[in-house]
Design a protein around this nucleic acid. Structure first.
Lengths: 217, 217
DNA sequence: TAGATTGTTAATCGATTAACAATC
DNA sequence: TAGATTGTTAATCGATTAACAATC
């Protein structure tokens, strides 16, 4: 009933969206849904949905569709949301603070256990019940608490040095908000880059393209 | 020398990255670069780089490579960074504040001209020199200033209503940070969703997969 | 049983890579 | 000219869509 077949990167990227949509359906007490109905809600094809879900085993039932709650739970398990990964946050500036406060780490399979910053003015602050500590203490903290993931909310100039230090301290995964590209070609680590500035530039491109097309036709 | 051929979505998503990498090279005074050298830095194939850049016309020179500055400028123009789109921010909470302060809108082709929030406690605050105003004033503001893009940093429950109001007020593009999926199937608008929570769940998946594989081998 | 809808194979489409002729 | 490297076509690969037999 669980792990099987090939799971393509494209499918992995869609899993959280399935999870979210199914969660919304649960909230309004929908118990079953067909791939066709779900496809209309999500803007995908029914075929793709069946293909995607079948990577992980037969979640559906012919003639009936999918049980929303069961499917939601299964995808949650596939994503690892029922487990808990210890994470630390590096950088307690505007963005780091927003992420610490705004993100429900515990609902996404993580637990935030430490926050670090270079700036003496921020050290000692409490964010979500965690005291901001000097980046000098990272190695010691990692030795004692073995966090697995680091969330990087630091300027791009600092990213290379800090990430190398973190890798040496045993960090395996990076959620990287800095504008520096942590390349994914290091086999010892997992990187998830969130390039908000790239997203904004893409929006610029798309808006200009849209406006130009509308002026033509 | 400029617009030509088919530009695939995949290429558009890579353009900001090219732009960033070329900007970094410029800073260290690199004047020319070959597709092979750039491919090593960016973790792409040289073939893909030549293919991508050629969508927009012959930026390179056989036997020489690409002129870094010229290529950087051309990609900037393709992205529309030399133009200026007026934008408003809806939601001045943690995340909205961080984005207003942290993002260099003007370096990405935008100008932030208004900030709105529902919460009376925030109205009147100044962020980046802009006074936070009640969401009740959005329509009037749009009539007077005609912003083109809205940045949504609001709870998912509010997104549907607010976005419909904004579309009626003439907003064409959305940079959407709310956990609500603004679907891209409305031909009257452009949507760029930034789903940070999806990114975090994907990281959860990848970290667990990584750890499991390392335990096996 | 009849109707509905999945699971799964085959066909299509698009994006990436390889190869090489053109040319600076 | 010789060497380097692009622009571009052809080959490959992967992901999406279509179709339908299996089955609840």
């Amino acid at each position: 009933m669980s792990d099987a077949k090939q799971v393509s990167p494209a499918v992995v990227r869609r899993l959280p969206r399935y999870y979210r949509f199914l969660g919304e359906l649960l909230k309004v007490n929908v118990t079953r849904i067909s791939s066709r109905e779900l496809s209309e809600k999500m803007g995908l094809t029914a075929s793709q949905i069946r293909q995607d879900l079948n990577c992980f085993g037969g979640f559906g039932q012919q003639g009936y569709g999918y049980n929303v709650e069961q499917l939601h739970d299964e995808i949650g398990k596939i994503l690892g949301l029922d487990k808990c990964i210890d994470a630390i946050l590096i950088g307690a500036g505007n963005l780091g603070r927003a992420i610490a406060n705004h993100m429900s780490f515990d609902q996404r399979g993580f637990r935030l256990i430490g926050i670090f910053d270079q700036n003496p003015a921020l050290i000692g602050d409490k964010i979500k019940g965690i005291t901001v500590t000097s980046t000098d203490n990272i190695e010691t903290f990692c030795k004692n608490h073995s966090p697995v993931v680091a969330v990087l909310c630091i300027p791009k100039t600092a990213t290379k040095v800090i990430s190398e230090k973190l890798i040496k301290s045993g960090i395996k995964g990076f959620w990287n908000f800095s504008h520096y590209d942590l390349l994914d070609n290091n086999p010892d680590i997992i990187v998830e880059n969130v390039h908000m500035s790239d997203s904004l530039m893409t929006l610029s491109y798309k808006v200009h393209e849209f406006v130009d097309n509308n002026n033509k036709h």
